[in-house]
Simulated scan of single mutants.
Amino acid sequence: MMNNLLKGKKGIIFGALNPDSIAWKVAVRAHEEGATVTLSNTPVAIRMGETNQLGEQINAEVIGADATNVEDLENLIKKSMEALGGKIDFILHSIGMSPNVRKGRHYSDLDYNYLDKTLDVSAVSFHKVLQVARKLDAINEWGSVIALSYVAAQRSFFGYNDMADAKALLESIARSFGYIYGRERNVRVNTISQSPTITTAGNGVKGFDRLLDFSERMSPLGNATGDECADYCITLFSDLTKKVTMQNLFHDGGFSNMGMSLRALEQYEKGLDKHCACDDEKPSADEHRYD
């Protein structure tokens, strides 16, 4: 459904790799609601993904940039303002990556060089985007910046690894920078804590299929889909949410406020007669069973 909620607005969307990406869905919805955007990803991701096809589909310029590199971000934002004809109104940060997860390193045995990369790509890059945009005075008054997060920033989830630390930092950056940007220029900064969603990044999380099923059973409204997340982003880019800032907004069907649901309990009861390896004697330090 199109309501012209973003008519005349301009934005930058990071992270649209393929049609499964939430950023891809947001870009399509923003275009449908009347916005013009530029798309950005790393040059490697642009070559390997389908970002250029999306650019053709919604008539958006694709500008390669490493979001961890300040010079790249300066070039991206300047070129975006040139392509869009002035300051922008919204930014979506949909970026996340953990070499520790990719390499199968357990949380109790992290490679710290990998951890530095996880934090830089998945969280510090958000600070860099905000800092560069502020220094270039690139965002219009009452503009909106969103980064995608997950409830593992507040709770422990088996297999989520150092991405949980990155998401916690991401949300802290939104609060701290949100105060500064809000007081100075009425720009709002928020994070959306989305349900587990089938994306290229999501599928890299250990036990993701079971996590998806568990959250579906726990959530009164069920998991929020990528398309539904895109709709939510549109409302936060629009003028209907001008006084919402510094928030971590849960978009998860109610999962974040649940203790135990009947559907999850019934599924648990089905397995009570089966032996669980986690009931065995405690593992040695190098087994990493609980990581």
Rank of each mutant, 00 (worst) to 15 (best):
M1N: 06
M1G: 05
L6C: 06
G8E: 12
I13N: 14
K25N: 04
K25A: 02
E33P: 15
T36I: 13
T38Y: 09
S40Q: 04
T42E: 06
T42C: 08
V44G: 08
I46M: 10
I46L: 07
I46C: 10
R47Q: 11
G49W: 00
G49H: 00
E50K: 12
T51W: 01
Q53I: 01
Q53C: 02
A67T: 07
V70I: 10
E74H: 14
E74R: 15
N75C: 07
I77M: 12
I77E: 13
S80I: 09
S80Y: 12
E82N: 14
A83W: 04
G85A: 13
G86W: 13
D89W: 10
S94I: 01
S94V: 00
M97Y: 09
V101W: 07
V101G: 04
R105M: 07
Y107E: 08
S108K: 03
D109G: 05
L110K: 04
D111R: 06
Y114W: 11
Y114D: 15
L115G: 06
L119C: 02
D120K: 08
V121S: 05
S125E: 04
H127F: 07
K128L: 03
L130E: 01
A133Y: 05
L136E: 09
A138G: 08
I139L: 12
E141I: 07
E141A: 14
S144V: 04
S144Q: 11
V145K: 06
I146P: 08
I146R: 01
A147G: 06
S149R: 01
Y150R: 01
Y150C: 00
V151G: 03
A153P: 11
S156Y: 08
S156L: 02
F157L: 08
F158D: 02
G159A: 05
M163I: 08
M163K: 06
A168K: 14
A168W: 11
A168L: 15
L169Q: 15
L169T: 14
L169R: 13
E171S: 12
A174P: 11
S176F: 12
S176M: 11
F177R: 08
F177L: 10
Y179A: 10
R183A: 12
E184A: 05
R185C: 09
N186K: 14
R188W: 13
T191R: 12
I192C: 10
I198Q: 05
T200C: 01
G202V: 00
N203H: 00
N203W: 03
G204C: 00
V205R: 09
G207H: 12
G207P: 10
L211A: 10
F214D: 12
S215F: 13
E216H: 15
R217S: 14
R217W: 09
S219R: 11
A224K: 04
D227N: 13
E228V: 02
D231M: 01
C233I: 05
L236N: 07
F237A: 01
T241G: 06
T241F: 05
V244C: 13
T245S: 15
N248D: 10
N248G: 04
L249N: 06
L249D: 07
G253H: 05
G254L: 01
S256I: 01
S256H: 10
N257Q: 03
G259R: 02
G259L: 02
G259D: 04
S261R: 05
E269K: 03
G271S: 00
G271V: 00
L272E: 01
K274V: 00
H275E: 12
C276D: 11
C278H: 11
D280F: 10
P283W: 04
A285G: 02
D286H: 03
E287Q: 03
R289E: 03
